[in-house]
Design a protein around this nucleic acid. Structure first.
Lengths: 165, 165
DNA sequence: CTGTGGCATCACACCGACGTAGTTTCACCA
DNA sequence: TGGTGAAACTACGTCGGTGTGATGCCACAG
């Protein structure tokens, strides 16, 4: 399990120790590498909503958690791999129902519309018994890319990213 | 390498030994499990064209080879797995340029837009070094399903399907 | 307490990948 | 050697997933 203690949106200045409110919509899009329009569309259509503060009409602000960013990055990675958004929706709704929110390490394996979280060893079995298409995504790489993007934008926030699992 | 010696479209009757002209559009769609509209669209947009006889205007007939059916079934399987047609196009154009037409056994592995044909053992390496999404499709299963569909429609054609590799 | 920058929202357009319906034209059978 | 059924073609509609402004509105700075 991995968590970011503090982010750098809102807050009067770049004061150390300030626990910010999360990531704004625009910043989230930047960090994840998607357009604001995509982020907006995905929120409206219930793919991924900001867990810290949802929109409440014009002028309000969405606020995304670090966990949200991770999930968004997973979506983006799957899209880049040529997977349809519809399938991504199925995957996430399934994961949310059948697993905790700790979609963190391990590998995401998609077979049809029933995804799994498995270790590297277990994947081999799946391939040998493999019927149909197997989509394999190592989540560690996703986290790494995201953290690099964050550090790239906020160099001093480096120490705030802590590995707990 | 796997080849079907004779099919069962055209030809006066079900005469044994008759080497037919291939599979008609409608039959091809049935056997592969797609709609005629999809088959038509894919032909028009240069995804997969009938290699035995292309269309020559209204009233003409397309004629698909067994190899065509295999490729069409691969496309269908990838689509069912939630992969966008655009990615499928990239995969096939790459395979046609960098490999022979013997897209037969082995496993199809897609990493970005540069697919590979590898054995079961080699896949393990790819996963360990895995960056990004890996799409794995065992082609043996695809052929099996196609052959079953053909035998299902033409029971007496069973002996005409020969494995040569 | 108020002005305004920034964010959500809206309206419109667009493109790929088809579905549906109607039309044209050939291939094959009688 | 025709007729005709079936296959290719055309036209039009649709839906998801965006891009592109324009507009409305609130949160926060001052």
């Amino acid at each position: 399990m991995i968590s970011l203690v503090a982010s750098r949106d809102g807050g009067t200045t770049l004061t150390e120790g300030k626990v910010a409110a999360g990531f704004s919509g625009k910043r989230t899009a930047e960090l994840v590498g998607i357009t604001y329009r995509q982020l907006d569309y995905w929120a409206r259509t219930d793919l991924i909503r900001p867990s810290l503060a949802d929109a409440q009409g014009s002028g309000s602000r969405r606020s995304y958690s670090y966990q949200d960013l991770l999930e968004l990055k997973v979506v983006k990675t799957l899209l880049d791999a040529g997977i349809r958004l519809e399938m991504v929706r199925d995957v996430f709704s399934y994961l949310r129902e059948n697993l905790g929110a700790d979609v963190a390490s391990a590998n995401l394996v998609i077979n049809g519309s029933s995804p799994l979280l498995v270790s590297g060893e277990e994947i081999i079995d799946l391939i040998h018994k493999g019927q149909g298409v197997l989509n394999v995504l190592p989540l560690a790489g996703v986290k790494e890319e995201l953290d690099n993007a964050i550090i790239d934008l906020f160099p001093s926030a480096e120490d705030r990213i802590q590995a707990t699992g």
